[in-house]
Computed example of a mutant assay.
Amino acid sequence: MKWSNKGHQYDELGNGFKNKKIIIYGAAATGQEFYEEIKFLNAVEAFVDRNKSVQESGCKGLPVISVSELAKRKDDVIVVITVLGYNGMMVHSQLMHLGFELGRNCFYYDTFVNYYLSIYALYACGITYFPSISFLLTTACNLNCKGCLNFTKQNKNRRHYELEDLKKNADAFFKHVDYVGKFHMSGGEPFYYPHYEELLEYIGSKYGMQVRDFYTATNGTVVPRESLVQALKKYDVFVEVDDYRETLPGKIMKNDEIIDILCKNGIRHSDRGAGYWINLDPENQDNSNLSEDDLGIWYDTCNNPFASIHNGKLYSCNYDDYAKEARLVAESALDYLDLTKDEVDKKVLLEFRQGFTDRGYTNFCKRCAGHEMTNQKHIPVAEQY
C-alpha cells in the first residue's frame, strides 16, 4: 500500500479504539487462546458466554457476562468473536441486531489478530506490537534447494552473521517494538549458526518479556548440539522440523534423531511436511514492465505477512531483504525503516509493518512471483540443484 497520509493512515479507526476495553465472545478453547495471545495488553474486561455455569464460575480470572449485559456496553467496548464456523456467523448476526458494527466495534477473531490487533495495541494501549518478525542468523546451509526462499543458490556470499552485529540488531528492534508475537530465528540453516545459544541467551534474558513465542526452523539434517538444546529448552523455543525425507536420501535426514532429542527435553516442536513449495522464481519472473500503480497492486495482492530486521533495518517484506542479501536486487532506502535512529514515529512504524511504503511496493516486486495468495508456481519440496 502506498502512503497517502503518512503517520495518520489509521487515525480514524484507531481513535475509535481509544478508551475501549475488549470483550471476548466465547469462553471456550479459542476464546481462552485468544486471551493468552493478548493478555500483555491488559485490555480484556470480560468474556461473553451463554452457558450459565460458565457465567457463574468466570474464565481466566475474569467475569463472564450474558448477551443482555453486553448489549448495554456497545458504545464503550469492542467485541472479538471467537466462536467459529456457522455459530460464529450467528453470533455476528446477533451483535449486528444489538447495534454493533463489523470492523468498528465488532471483529472476527482471525481478522482481529492478523490485522486490527497492532492498530488497537498502539491507539488504545500505547503499545507497539508486531505479530511476527524474521531474524536472520545465517545464510549458510548444507542444502542447495531449488526455490529456496532465502535464495541459497543465488547468494555467492553465504555466511554466519557476527554475534555482536546480531545483538545490535536485536537492540535496535526492541528499542522501538514493545512486544512481538512470534520472534522467528531463521536461516540458512539456523542449527549451523555457531553462536546460536549465546545469541538466544542474550535476547531471551534481555527481551524475553517482550516476546510471546520464540520460533526457529531446521531442515532436519543437523542434530543440535547439547548446549543449544538446553538454550532452546530454557527459552521455550518452538522448533519447526522440516521433513524432506520423500525428496532427499534417508541417510541425510536426521528427523527421528532430532525429534527424539526435542521430546526428551520437553521442547515444543512440529514435524513439518509440505506437498509443494511456492517458487518466487526471481531468475525468470519479470514484472519490470508493470506501471507504478500495477506494481502497487501486485504488492498488495501478494500480501506477504512476513517482515524482517537486518542490520538495524526493518524490511516490510522479508524476501526483499533476502534478495538484497543475495544481490538479486539493489537496496533502496524506500524499502526499509532505519531502527538504529533514536526516534522513530510509532504510527509510521505501525503503518510500515502493516504494509504501507512511500511508493507502495519493493524493488524485489519487479522480480518476484508473489507469496501464497498469488503464486501458482509450485515446485517439489527440497528438490536439489
Rank of each mutant, 00 (worst) to 15 (best):
N5W: 00
N15C: 09
G16I: 11
N19S: 12
I24C: 12
E36W: 07
E37H: 07
N42Q: 14
N51I: 05
E56V: 01
E56Y: 05
C59P: 01
K60P: 03
G61N: 09
V67Y: 11
D75F: 14
M96H: 07
F107A: 01
Y109T: 05
T111C: 04
Y115E: 02
Y116Q: 08
Y116I: 09
C125T: 02
I133M: 13
T139G: 06
C141F: 04
N142T: 08
F151S: 03
K153V: 11
A170Y: 14
D171A: 11
Y179S: 03
S186H: 05
Y193P: 03
Y196P: 02
E197A: 10
S205A: 14
Y215P: 00
V222L: 03
E226R: 13
S227W: 09
K234G: 08
D236T: 12
V239T: 13
D242S: 13
K251W: 08
K254H: 15
I258S: 05
C263H: 03
N265W: 09
P282K: 04
N287P: 13
S288G: 07
L290R: 10
D293M: 14
D294F: 05
I297V: 15
W298Y: 12
Y299M: 12
N304K: 11
A307P: 06
S308T: 04
K313G: 00
Y315R: 05
Y319M: 14
A330V: 04
D335L: 00
L337R: 11
T340D: 15
K341H: 15
V344S: 05
K346S: 14
K347G: 00
G355W: 13
T357W: 02
R359K: 04
C365S: 10
H371G: 04
E372Y: 10
M373K: 14
N375Y: 05
V381G: 00
